[in-house]
Each structure stands twice: as C-alpha cells, then as structure tokens.
Simulated scan of single mutants.
Amino acid sequence: MFGPQVPTMPVTEITDETYLLDVREDDEWAAGHAPQAHHLPMMELPARLAEVPDDREVAVICRSGGRSAQVVAYLVRHGWDQARNVAGGMGDWAAAGRPVVGTDGQPGRVL
C-alpha cells in the first residue's frame, strides 16, 4: 500500500528500549494503550516533531497500521532513519498478549 519505503516491524520485536509512539486519537488512547507508549496524535505530529527522539529506534503504532505507516513515511522523509511501522497495530499488540491499559490505569481495550 505504501511501498517499500515504509519499514515495518512486528509487535514481537518491540523491546523496552524501543520508543513506542502511539499516533491514535485521544479517545482511542484513553480506552487502551501500551503502558510504555508515548501519545502524539497523528495530526499534531508536524507541530510536535521535536518530541520524537532521533537517536534510537522509534516504533509507530495506531489501530491497524494505516495511520502509523503514514507517520513513518513522514518521519523517514524528515531524517528519522530508525522509524518503523508496527505491523498490525494495536490489534496485533493485544492479540500477542501485550499489556493494554486505559488512562485510568485499569486494563484497557483497543478501539
């Protein structure tokens, strides 16, 4: 869909050292996200680009992989060589048994 210029990685390759960037909307984030993720809605990225580290691997995640692929393409165009799209998004994250929490700290769900 986006061609080979968008590098991807499976959920299973995300480690504690990976900067996990969740680009979903506020309501999706509130319902459930990975505990170590950093929230930056896709539409706010251009204004908040400086918040994304460029010195380590950045895994970008959304619900299913479409929005995050667009964000990775944007980051790569702007010099982020270590940006990766998380294949399957939060759906695959939850299916792999990885933790999902809501903003209240309780177990969350993927919208």
Results as ranks from 00 to 15, higher is better:
Arg84Asn: 08
Leu40His: 08
Glu25Cys: 11
Pro53Arg: 02
Gln70Tyr: 10
Asp16Ile: 06
Leu20Cys: 07
Tyr74Pro: 00
Gly32Leu: 12
Asp27Arg: 10
His33Pro: 11
Ala37Glu: 09
Asp22Ser: 15
Met42Phe: 13
Val72Gln: 01
Gln82Leu: 08
Gly32Trp: 13
Ala31Thr: 13
Ile14Asp: 00
His78Phe: 07
Ile14Tyr: 02
Thr12Asp: 08
Trp80Val: 01
Arg77Glu: 12
Gly66Lys: 10
Thr12Gln: 08
Arg48Val: 07
Ala73Arg: 11
His33Asn: 08
Arg84Lys: 15
Trp80Glu: 00
Ala34Leu: 05
Met43Gly: 10
Arg48Asn: 14
Ala87Val: 08
Pro41Val: 15
Asp16Pro: 06
Thr12Arg: 09
Ala31Phe: 11
Gly32Ala: 12
Arg56Glu: 01
Ala30Tyr: 04
Asp26Ser: 15
Met90Trp: 01
Tyr19Trp: 10
Ile61Lys: 00
Ala30Ile: 10
Pro7Ile: 13
Val60Gly: 02
Ser68Ala: 05
Ala73Met: 07
Glu44Thr: 15
Tyr74Gln: 00
Ile14Glu: 00
Ala73His: 07
Pro10Trp: 04
Trp29Cys: 08
Ala83Glu: 02
Val71Tyr: 00
Asp92His: 11
Trp80Lys: 01
Glu25Asp: 15
Ala83His: 04
Val60Cys: 03
His39Thr: 12
Val6Ala: 06
Leu21Ile: 11
Ala30Met: 07
Val23Ile: 14
Leu75Arg: 03
Asp55Ile: 05
Met9Lys: 11
Leu75Asn: 02
Met90Gly: 07
Met90Ile: 10
Pro4Gln: 10
Ala31Val: 11
His78Trp: 04
Arg63Ile: 12
Leu21Pro: 12
Ala94Tyr: 01
His38Ser: 10
Ala87Ser: 13
Tyr74Ile: 01
Val86Ser: 09
Asp22Tyr: 06
Glu13Thr: 14
Asp27Met: 11
Ser68Gly: 06
Glu13Phe: 05
Ala94Pro: 03
Leu75Trp: 03
Gly88Ile: 10
Val71Ala: 14
Glu28Gly: 14
Leu45Asp: 05
Leu49Cys: 02
Met42Asn: 02
Leu20Asn: 02
Val71Arg: 01
Glu25Ala: 14
Glu25Phe: 14
Leu75Asp: 00
Val11Lys: 03
Asp81Thr: 10
Asp16Leu: 06
Thr18Val: 15
Val71Met: 03
Glu28Ala: 15
Gly66Phe: 08
Arg24Pro: 14
Tyr19Ser: 04
Val58Trp: 01
Glu44Lys: 09
Tyr74Trp: 09
Ala37Arg: 05
Leu75Glu: 00
Ala47Pro: 04
Pro10Asp: 12
Gly65Gln: 07
Pro53Val: 05
Thr15Ser: 14
Ala69Met: 08
Met9Glu: 04
Val60Pro: 03
Pro4Ala: 13
Ser68Arg: 03
Cys62Pro: 07
Ala59Ile: 06
Ala30Cys: 06
Pro7Tyr: 13
Ala69Arg: 04
Val52Lys: 00
